[in-house]
């Protein structure tokens, strides 16, 4: 019996198989205890995974700071309007308290949010600086290597020049010595004859 591959079964277990595949594999499953056992094991694993649940990320916690600020501004504006139409001292005090509370909340929220983001950005910046420093260092090393190669080449050239110059000087010296000991041959047309 040809057994479907685990890849086929995964398509079925996670609802990604086509209708035809599903019918074929269902038929196979009824007739094959070996595959049925495997599928049972996988399904048990899937069921167990569902035991680890995570809470929904709280939207209030992640609202951008500007939302708090906007909400605070809206409530403050409302407070101003109410204040204009109210002569009650008590009302004024309550609005002032409300303003302070909103201001405090907005500041706290914005501060915490901003702090978190700043930490993230600072980290990124630090990484970026690290990368920049590494690239700079690599470039410097490359320049250094290039210069070293240049110096080595110059040394070689100078060595060659020195050897050649030395050889030529030796030749010139020999010629000078030869010239110093030179005696011209007798002139056949001289008066001595």
């Amino acid at each position: 019996m040809n057994h479907p591959t685990p890849e086929h079964w995964m398509g079925i277990l996670y609802g990604e198989a086509t209708e035809t595949e599903r019918h074929e594999l269902d038929a196979h499953l009824r007739a094959c205890p070996e595959c049925a056992a495997k599928v049972k094991t996988w399904r048990a694993g899937m069921g167990a995974l569902d035991e680890w649940k995570l809470p929904q990320a709280s939207p209030a916690r992640h609202q951008p700071a500007w939302r708090w600020v906007a909400a605070a501004a809206a409530v403050l504006a409302l407070g101003v309007v109410i204040g204009r139409f109210s002569m009650s001292r008590e009302m004024d005090n309550r609005i002032a308290a409300l303003r302070n509370e909103i201001h405090l909340k907005a500041t706290e929220s914005a501060g915490a949010e901003a702090q978190k983001w700043l930490t993230g950005f600072a980290k990124e910046l630090e990484e970026q600086r690290g990368t920049d420093a590494a690239s700079y260092l690599a470039a410097l090393r490359q320049v250094d290597a290039h210069r070293s190669a240049e110096i080595a080449r110059l040394r070689r050239d100078l060595g060659t020049v020195a050897v050649v110059a030395d050889a030529r000087l030796s030749g010139a010296e020999e010629q000078l010595y030869a010239l110093a000991g030179y005696t011209p041959p007798d002139d056949p047309d001289s008066d001595d004859e």
Binding site: P6, E7, M10, Y14, T41, W42, M46, A48, L49
Partner: peptide, 24 residues
């Protein structure tokens, strides 16, 4: 898919007691 199958097999082995103690 093959990695998923292998992962589920490994998880099933490790979580055998959990699954038999508390059938869900």
């Amino acid at each position: 898919k093959s990695r998923m199958a292998e992962a589920l097999s490994q998880l099933s082995k490790r979580l055998n007691s959990l699954m038999t103690d508390e059938p869900r």
